[in-house]
């Protein structure tokens, strides 16, 4: 698969900061994959997203060493309009994203498409579809700032999804959602993969990351301490030392092994846990 984004030895410091927020990070993001970014709070997850999206250093200023490439071309050679066509960014706090100039949810979702000069009929259709998908269609006529925190998070996601960017960078989109809402957001995001979209998602809910993501980046104090296939990463107990939770099923698996049970592998999802523990029980029954 083609590499869409590459970071080569990137170190980045915010203006006036006494130490870098990101230290010597090299990584490749491949087209059509779903990446989970995990790490304790303050480990640099949001900063990494800002670099990948091109906000840092162009908007936040500060100092960036190393190279950031988008489709093989340095990020700094793209203008902001071009970047916005390729990449969508959903902010951690929806309040930072909502434009503040639109009086209804419908208009807010349509705002980006208007700026891209999309024909009106097409805007209406795309906005309606996305509002249904993100379950905010019943709020179409409400003012964005009258919505609850969870509803604002859905609105922020909808107004980026509607732009259909090839690459989506999404920062903790479910922190204020209930379990059912959270799962529906993960469903929506994983559907993007079918359309060959690339997703980079920051999220603490590691059980859902285990379910839906393909690959994982783990950050600690600004460094990329582990990356790769989700099974390899999310079964690594050393993550706990860096303040990163493992999926419940991986914790269960490790603890069963410690008690002397011979599990074929460490599960990370419920389905795998049923499989591997089921086999164990079946073997004993023979």
């Amino acid at each position: 698969m083609g590499v869409v984004i590459e970071l080569r030895n990137v170190t980045y410091s915010y203006p006036l900061a006494d130490k870098p927020a990101i230290k010597d990070v090299s990584l490749k993001v491949e087209e059509g994959k779903f990446y989970g970014v995990i790490g304790k709070n303050g480990s640099g997850k949001t900063t990494l997203c800002s670099i990948i999206r091109g906000f840092a250093p162009s908007f936040f200023k500060g100092e960036l060493e190393g190279e950031v490439l988008l489709y093989g071309k340095p990020m700094s050679e793209y203008d902001q309009g071009e970047l916005a066509l390729h990449m969508g960014y959903v902010f951690q706090n929806p309040f930072n994203q909502i434009s503040g100039v639109k009086e209804t949810v419908f208009e807010e979702v349509a705002f980006g498409l208007e700026n891209f000069g999309v024909p009106v009929e097409e805007i209406e259709e795309r906005v309606m579809d996305i509002m249904k998908l993100t379950k905010i269609d019943h709020l179409a006529e409400q003012h964005p700032f009258e919505l609850s925190g969870g509803q604002q998070q859905r609105l922020a996601l909808a107004s980026i999804l509607v732009l259909e960017p090839d690459i989506m960078v999404i920062d903790e989109p479910t922190s204020q959602l209930d379990p059912e809402g959270t799962e529906s957001v993960f469903e929506i995001i994983s559907q993007l993969k079918k359309a060959r979209k690339t997703v980079i998602l920051v999220e603490h809910k590691v059980d859902l990351i285990a379910e839906y993501a393909d690959e994982i980046f783990v950050l600690n104090d600004g460094e990329l301490i582990k990356s790769g296939d989700k099974h390899d990463v999310l079964t690594d107990v050393s993550l706990l030392d860096h303040g990163v939770q493992l999926p419940q099923m991986a914790v269960l698996g490790h603890r069963l092994r410690k008690r002397g049970l011979n599990l074929d592998y460490i599960p990370i999802t419920e389905k795998e846990a049923k499989d591997v523990i089921g086999r164990l029980i079946y073997r004993e029954a023979q």
């Binding site: 209930d178 419940q248 269960l252 846990a273 049923k274 523990i277 029980i281």
Partner: peptide
Amino acid sequence: AMLKPPHVSRVCREL
């Protein structure tokens, strides 16, 4: 309430 029990509850129930 549209809630799910903890992951271990679901796995143990199915097993």
